[in-house]
């Protein structure tokens, strides 16, 4: 569905490339987390998926379309929905339902059809009751859900979240994560860029970025086996994984696929 083929990208004024020879492919229905510290290139990677940025070298192909062809852009952006970090700076209009309608309006869809899509999208993120609210009265988590509804109204195949949880409080983050997981369950391909390792435990695959390169690309269990590599890339594994490794160094035998508090307790003391 999405293919990065030896992608290198350099910002105009930068000394070194932000992405170096990245190869990556994402299949339909996958839930992928892209992690990395600031400046690792993870956001740059995300912006390549919907053609906001175009590779300096190499190609990005999305649903069979190359992103460096301008004629494809509208079609690509319709298929790749993208949510950003600051919930305030991505909502365009004052009223919730008007904002959700913004995307389909841009596509020139029939007003009746837009109405249907808006209602469906608001329902999918659980914000139907807020259709006529003023955007600035909502909480951060609610704003982010509206942003996602606005994307769903475009009926995309892929949802890309570019650090969409970074500015939310814990309950807002849970709200967002639950919404995204629910969408994934109903068939959406999800690419989630984040710095919070604890959000990634439920993903199919984690891509760890470092200095513009893909450092690791594997299942959460495999990735969290390499705690030292993560710490080296200035990433902090979930607290449970840190505790797990300390206990292991004490001589406790705990399997590597232990990622949550419950699993750890179970490993230390199997319930009968």
């Amino acid at each position: 569905m999405i293919r990065f083929d030896h992608v290198t990208f350099q910002y105009e004024k930068a000394d070194s490339p932000a992405l170096k020879d990245v190869c990556l492919s994402i299949a339909q229905g996958e839930f992928i987390a892209v992690v990395g510290h600031n400046g690792s290139g993870k956001s740059t990677l995300a912006k390549h998926i919907n053609g906001l940025l175009v590779p300096t070298e190499g190609t990005v192909t999305v649903c069979g379309m190359r992103t460096d062809d301008e004629n494809n852009l509208l079609k690509i952006r319709q298929n790749i929905g993208m949510a950003f970090q600051n919930p305030d700076n991505q909502l365009v209009t004052t009223v919730v339902e008007e904002d959700v309608a913004f995307g389909p309006e841009n596509l020139g869809i029939d007003p009746k059809e837009i109405r249907v899509r808006v209602d469906e999208a608001l329902k999918a993120v659980g914000m139907t009751d807020y259709a006529e609210y003023a955007v600035h009265h909502l909480s951060g988590g609610q704003k982010q859900r509206i942003a996602i509804a606005g994307i769903l109204a475009l009926k995309p195949q892929v949802l890309v979240l570019d650090e969409a949880s970074a500015m939310l409080d814990p309950s807002g983050r849970i709200e967002l994560l639950e919404t995204v997981h629910r969408l994934h369950d109903s068939g959406m391909t999800v690419v989630m860029v984040t710095q919070y390792m604890e959000e990634t435990t439920g993903c199919d695959r984690i891509v760890v970025m470092k200095g513009g390169c893909v450092l690791l690309d594997d299942t959460p269990q495999e990735v969290f086996r390499h705690t030292d590599l993560l710490l080296e890339s200035n990433l902090v594994p979930p607290e449970t994984v840190i505790v797990r490794d300390s206990l292991k160094s004490l001589g406790y035998s705990i399997p590597d696929d232990v990622l949550t508090a419950k699993q750890l307790a179970e490993a230390l003391c199997p319930s009968k």
Binding site: N50, L52, L74, R77, Q78, G81, M82, F84, N89, Q90, V92, E97, E98, A101, F102, G103, P104, E105, N106, L107, G108, I109, D110, P111, I114, R115, V118, A147, G150, I151, L154
Partner: peptide, 19 residues
Amino acid sequence: IAMESRCYHGGEGRTRMHQ
């Protein structure tokens, strides 16, 4: 950037939900 990502490309061919 957010508007561009949501397929905004000016007023041409744009419809409105509320008529």
